[in-house]
Design a binder for these strands. Structure first.
Lengths: 229, 229
DNA sequence: CGAGCGATTGAAAAGACTCAACCACCGTGG
DNA sequence: CCACGGTGGTTGAGTCTTTTCAATCGCTCG
């Protein structure tokens, strides 16, 4: 019983587009985008692209969520970023001229549109607003990753988990956080067992509640305090 | 007895420029750059810009080295990047429209040129090659940071140190690595004491040698093996 | 020559990880 | 309808890494 099924949304009516890189598009531009994109339904845990492959285009998330991750030596995933509706994924490697250094996989059923590399690059070339949006996005992400690195290096797992839960809540919006313990651990950067133990601690401290695998935030302030942020 | 003193190098003759973002510039473009830049001498440990301030322009390193770092909760530095001659520093925040999220400070005496914000942005607007170079640079850096995050999250301090020493050697080229133990620890992401103990281990394993604070790499292969990369 | 900072060492404690086992839920096939 | 198998979640115990704190050393700068 998939809640989401294959739908063909036009770019014009796409709510996700409003907040995306293409938010500034209007009239003719939207039509062009509409003609160039193809829309697909992705099952849960389906890869969009994988580390080492050459970029073929960009993915615009209409509905659903995607994890972006790298693999360490032992093959353990490290989730670098979680992308939700409205985000455009996979465009970074288009500019570096190198193969993907990360992989992207859906976390739930998703509707995702695809725009081919040359079409996308043409858009970027001809549209200064889009270009500036991309440069801004790249720069912001760079700053985010500086913070990410600092947190990894200096915070305890407990602090990182509190911080991560707050980030996750922002991504899941009204919904409850719904991630496998392993994915959550790979986001926080810890072992699954450690993550579970800390979730239990947080439950006991009434910072969160769990409903099966889903996690409900009870005390934002408290978590913020634990995160030391 | 400063080995480096204030010199005014013209962009045209600047060897560092060749490898920099401005490497593609020729004739008239170089002249324009020359007119817009101002060149200054920086003492050791002198800040170029600090976290929280608004970007005023970009810094092109002619001679010397610069650390880019963020500060964690307790004010502890985390070095995100080390920049050497030829690198242009501080342009990321120019596009994000936000204040700097990181600080930059010289690690040694340096000669560094400055280009004001509006001049730089004009250059970017009018020069597609520069623009593409920047987008490429931003994307590559983003990929590097994904690896950085993964290393932080999954590698032991010992592994990270081995890896870091190899990176440092690339930055210091022919010279020996010359960093305070604290800076080195802040790059690796560990406590100074731990760093010192591990350096001692590496010495005993004849992977490195030390000459006062300077570190000499004796066995690249060995370090690579320790780094597990 | 003394002050002070950076480098180094020691000892103890804390935080996290690993490994192993167990549980709980879910869909399948009989 | 229920037993079965499998995956993901949870718990316990022990170990190892890393940090912390305190103290010492050594050198450079005034």
């Amino acid at each position: 019983m998939p809640e989401k099924s294959h739908k063909h949304v036009t770019c014009e009516n796409c709510l996700s587009r409003q907040n995306s890189l293409f938010g500034s598009f209007c009239g003719e531009e939207v039509d062009l985008l509409e003609r160039q994109k193809s829309c697909s339904y992705f099952k849960k845990n389906q890869p969009l692209f994988i580390e080492g492959s050459a970029p073929r285009g960009v993915y615009c998330i209409n509905e659903g969520k995607v994890k972006i991750f790298a693999r360490g030596e032992e093959g353990k995933e490290q989730i670098i970023h979680l992308a939700a509706a409205g985000e455009v994924v996979g465009f970074r490697a288009m500019f570096s001229g190198e193969p993907y250094k990360v992989s992207a996989t859906t976390l739930e059923e998703s509707n995702i549109c695809f725009i081919g590399k040359s079409d996308f690059l043409d858009l970027v070339d001809s549209n200064p607003t889009l270009r500036n949006g991309i440069m801004k996005e790249l720069s912001k992400e760079l700053a985010d990753r500086a913070t990410f690195i600092t947190n990894m290096a200096q915070k305890s797992v407990r602090e990182r988990l509190a911080f991560s839960l707050l980030m996750l809540q922002d991504i899941y919006k009204e919904e409850m956080i719904n991630l496998s313990r392993e994915d959550m651990a790979n986001f926080v950067g810890t072992a699954t067992e450690t993550l579970i133990r800390l979730l239990k601690d947080f439950k006991e401290e009434e910072l969160i509640a769990t409903h099966a695998r889903r996690v409900e935030i009870l005390d934002r302030e408290g978590l913020l305090r634990v995160a030391g942020n």
